[in-house]
Design a protein around this nucleic acid. Structure first.
Lengths: 387, 387
DNA sequence: CATCTTTTGACGGGTACTCGACAAAAGTCA
DNA sequence: TGACTTTTGTCGAGTACCCGTCAAAAGATG
């Protein structure tokens, strides 16, 4: 039983507890727990949370996790935008900034932006630089999470195998964690909406279509780090739409933003791009609504397979197409509940993202928080305190 | 650093090591390692493995994991057959028995068979009963692994929520682990063919079609324990074959044994059942070969999606249809390598099961071994030794 | 306001663990 | 054969950890 166990218990229970309760739950003596709590309080990770109600004698002091102990930086880098935020250890955003920034500018320019915003955001959050405990970054392409490098990214010239953590750590000497943007969005949705879900699939549908998979409580990246690549699965209904991957009938060639826009253009609607499509659907354009609903059905066709295969408890739909209201997810539900097995859909929830465009930074922050509050990190910190 | 860590190191390295090497790898003092090794040797889990070559002084004694320390019982219960085997801790089968036994007879009769074979197999392996360390059992239906109960199994009347471990433990007071038969087959293939693979998908194709998923090194059971249910995914090519699940165009309604047999019957070939189909393919019946190859393509259609989604390093194909030689898996490869993304198939291996009908018992044994050699179990055993 | 109850932090003792030293054992090399 | 080298098991010492005790603190109760 170590210091991190006491912290983990307090975090799991997610409610203020007395030292006596902690002792009872861990099986340790009261005095031992008191020592552990003392360390955690000196680290700032735990704070008194007022007094509990007395049962006749001195009232016990309640202890709770202190989200304000440190902060993390979450960065979401998209193809043509960048977003960064400072969050406390509960994942609450304290300051946020976004910019139009082309990832193709290369690591030097893009990471320079990151290094420039970070101090501004910390300042807005009224936090000194040394309160920053870790940085999480999402990149729009395949990433080798263990090394923090992008591997053969199709839309990120100059980033191939570039050592992102080393670059960022020159400016901020803290742990830097990198992952795929869809993976961090999955983490973000899990952290904010379904913190107890151990099997969750996140779908991002906008210019492309990708999935982030959390199975058995762990983010699944696959053998080559390309897990979740659902965009190039062939849909059920016959289609001869040619995909940029070279195959025909891919989901992305039918149900992604550009594909829908093209189809509407061919039918006479002057839809320019994905953003325009979203606007029209929100405005109630019947053709656009129907097209998005059909795209939802096509995605639902693939999701039905995914649900049968991995049997998640939650599917979260995000990306630009999910922000068109309920039309898109309605199309998805329609097909999934028809095609998937009853046993798999019985307790399945299919919901839209509530975090919208913030899911990326929230997930990047969640990844960083997960690192900072990991048992290993807490053990190390408590050791450093005593020596 | 605990006793289990020393054992885990010796097991990971998978080669005889000296105490000095163990000390260097763990960072502990030689004397501490010696004490740990002593405990492990008294438990029988580690044995001397001859002498290493001297470098001028006394030659060091090599230490290796001792697979003969204990034995486990692996049981594979199918719809109409049962198979049990005693294996050592390396997974090597020491004695084996099979029987024609209908799972629908109910738990009392089926488990009575298990309790009757176990002593016979132990006797054949020249092992006393108290050498038995754990029992693993695979059941042909959805199983709640944590409790060891079958949940709403379609083909197992009388088994619903029956407490299998409790029943078996009345006869053998050892840990009893239960899982779905396809899941244990996946474990078996991983253990025997690809012990280092962390992302492996096993496909069982015979009367039904199911998948066992190992992702991130862990068996994935999904939220309701129905993960891997690929039999009722709709295949790409149009089909109006009605499935027993009520939908049309399911993989199982097209590519499973009974479906192929029916199709061949309709075309004039008097194929009775799956076993007969397998015989004919092996004999070189052209119609049967073509039908199996087409079934492979249909399964490949679904597998292409699975490969894109979970990005495994290995796909192992087992079940009766995989025992027809290379025809079936050739059909699978044909489609997967065409439809899946190059990045996902670059290092992908698609192989047939080498264990054949034994994959079930091997996997059940592997599951039991995993429990016996788990860090927790070793810690507990070493504690019991000192007290 | 005095007494009682309960929590809290500090203190001392006991246990278990880990380390380094040392002598015996087992080969090598001249 | 004798000196040298390296491993092995034992032993004592130091240390870290964990527990129960106790007085002081803080509020409840009459």
């Amino acid at each position: 039983m170590k210091t991190s166990d006491v912290f983990a218990l307090l975090q799991r229970e997610n409610r203020p507890m007395t030292r006596a309760q902690l002792a009872a739950s861990t099986g340790l003596a009261r005095s031992t727990v008191a020592a552990r709590v003392d360390v955690l309080m000196r680290l700032g990770l735990v704070t008194p949370y007022g007094d509990g109600h007395s049962t006749g004698g001195r009232p016990p002091s309640l202890l709770a996790v202190n989200p304000a102990a440190r902060v993390v930086l979450g960065v979401d880098l998209g193809a043509t935008h960048a977003r960064a935020a400072v969050a406390d250890l509960s994942g609450q955003l304290l300051a946020e900034e976004r910019a139009d920034l082309d990832i193709a500018e290369g690591p030097d320019i893009v990471l320079a932006w990151v290094e420039a915003v970070a101090p501004r955001l910390l300042d807005q959050a009224h936090r000194p630089v040394h309160d920053l405990a870790a940085i999480g970054i999402g990149l729009p392409g395949p990433v080798e999470h263990s090394t923090g490098r992008a591997i053969n990214p199709p839309i990120m010239p100059g980033w191939d195998r570039y050592d992102v953590p080393a670059h960022v750590q020159r400016a901020f000497p803290v742990p830097v964690l990198i992952d795929n943007d869809v993976n961090i969005m999955a983490l973000g949705e899990q952290h904010t909406q379904f913190p107890t879900a151990r099997d969750l699939v996140f779908i991002k549908a906008s210019t492309g279509i990708g999935a982030g998979i959390i199975a058995g409580g762990e983010l699944q990246r696959g053998a080559q780090g390309t897990a979740g690549d659902v965009g190039h699965i062939r849909i059920g209904r016959p289609s001869d739409a040619v995909c940029r991957c070279g195959n025909v009938g891919c989901l992305e060639a039918v149900a992604a933003g550009p594909a829908i826009a093209r189809a509407l253009q061919a039918a006479g609607s002057p839809v320019r791009d994905t953003a325009d499509l979203v606007r029209r659907v929100r405005a109630g354009d019947v053709d656009a609504v129907q097209a998005v609903r059909q795209a939802g059905r096509d995605l639902g066709d693939v999701l039905a397979m995914v649900v049968n295969f991995i049997n998640p408890s939650v599917v979260v739909v995000g990306g630009a197409l999910a922000s068109t209201g309920e039309h898109f997810v309605a199309g998805i539900r329609e097909v999934v509940y028809q095609r998937s097995l009853p046993l798999a859909t019985e307790h399945l929830r299919i919901v839209t993202s509530v975090t919208g465009e913030r899911s990326g930074v929230l997930g990047a922050a969640a990844m960083a928080i997960g690192h900072v509050l990991s048992p290993e990190a807490i053990e190390q910190a408590s050791l450093a305190l005593t020596s």
